[in-house]
């Protein structure tokens, strides 16, 4: 079981080193697949499934603040979860790194 940062609800989900720069990797948290992205200035986490057709967002191309779904190029802002040029949105979760470990909490 993942260790839980007491009281805050954050759980450890993996090693920061396992996510390469400007890429994403997914992890199952509470039965939900979450995509975690390493950005130039920190981390971002969203639901892994694109709201359009369920594409794996962790496999998308990541820019400074957005990810593009590899299936049909829907693009989402990683800060707000909102689709660029559309009405869809993906849930955004809290994530941070401490001592090489990634911690996250579902929104």
């Amino acid at each position: 079981m993942s260790p839980v940062l007491s009281e805050t609800g954050f759980v450890a989900v993996g090693a920061a080193a396992d996510v390469p720069a400007l890429e994403g990797r997914s992890v199952l948290v509470d039965g939900r697949r979450i995509a975690i992205f390493r950005l130039p200035d920190g981390w971002a986490a969203t639901d892994a499934a694109c709201p359009h057709r369920g594409g794996p967002l962790q496999d998308g191309i990541v820019a400074d603040h957005c990810v593009t779904c590899p299936l049909h190029n829907r693009r989402f802002d990683l800060r707000t979860g909102r689709q660029d040029g559309g009405d869809d949105a993906v849930a955004v979760h809290e994530v941070f790194e401490r001592d090489g470990m990634l911690w996250m909490r579902l929104a």
């Binding site: 191309i61 820019a63 400074d64 990810v67 593009t68 190029n73 693009r75």
Partner: peptide, 10 residues
């Protein structure tokens, strides 16, 4: 180049 939306990175 390539930083705003990333689409052109490939």
């Amino acid at each position: 180049a390539g930083r705003a939306c990333g689409a052109c990175k490939p």
